[in-house]
């Protein structure tokens, strides 16, 4: 465990909490992609299947449970909460998630560390996490006007990925046998997807004005 890894996990948790808090406080989920949230839940569930029999550390187990619980709560708010579900941007959130799930599943069947059910599901979750933000980015692009909290959410998620890259570099330098190229490549793709968004986010922040994405 190193400082980059811990920072990354905390940033990840913060991003989810920012979103939950926004929904809870404003009773609105405008601008948030339900597709992306459902994909993240799928990522967590397929990756953390081993929660019950592969105990690594209390740290890992607590984070796994918290990630699954908090993202389930976001989905519950968006689909079931009487006030919140009416604010969901259904007409703009039309990304077909099978376009992401099917290629990730096929790739996980072909490119994996070991051909076993749990290893393939784990690899699938790594690939899916890399692209799960796409429906959210498309929704932001369509609605143009990004409110502060939604902007912060995507920014924190991007920062979390950047810190994971630092963690890998650190581990590669300090642990003799550490190598995980499937995770590294997926992580690079995932972080790359945020770069365009980061540019506009930082520009808006520098000029301290509302974040607006170009058409």
């Amino acid at each position: 465990m190193n400082i980059f890894r811990v920072s990354a996990d905390i940033l990840h948790l913060l991003s989810i909490l920012v979103l939950l808090l926004k929904i809870h406080a404003t009773k609105s989920c405008a601008g948030i992609s339900l597709k992306t949230q459902e994909l993240y839940l799928a990522v967590f569930v397929t990756r953390y299947l081993d929660l019950f029999w592969n105990f690594h550390s209390l740290y890992n187990s607590v984070f796994k449970v918290v990630y699954i619980a908090t993202s389930s709560m976001i989905i519950w708010y968006m689909k079931r909460h009487r006030g919140v579900k009416q604010t969901y941007d259904k007409d703009h959130d039309t990304f077909r998630y099978l376009f992401l799930i099917v290629p990730c599943a096929v790739l996980a069947l072909i490119v994996n560390g070991r051909f076993s059910l749990f290893e393939i599901l784990w690899t699938f979750s790594i690939y899916l996490e890399a692209v799960a933000i796409l429906p959210q980015l498309v929704l932001l692009q369509r609605t143009k006007n990004v409110d502060n909290l939604t902007g912060n959410y995507v920014f924190l998620l991007g920062l979390y990925r950047a810190f994971y890259i630092l963690n890998w570099i650190y581990r590669y330098a300090t642990e003799p046998h550490y190598s995980a190229w499937i995770v590294w490549l997926s992580g690079l793709v995932q972080t790359g997807l945020y770069l365009d968004f980061f540019y506009y986010y930082l520009q808006a922040w520098k000029q301290s004005k509302k974040l607006q994405l170009p058409s």
């Binding site: 890894r5 996990d9 990840h12 081993d50 592969n54 690594h56 550390s57 890992n60 984070f63 796994k64 990630y67 560390g113 070991r114 784990w122 994971y164 963690n167 642990e175 046998h177 550490y178 190598s179 995980a180 499937i182 995770v183």
Partner: peptide, 10 residues
């Protein structure tokens, strides 16, 4: 070691 190592990450 090797391929399984990233399993200790979240």
């Amino acid at each position: 070691t090797g391929k399984g190592e990233a399993h200790d990450e979240l």
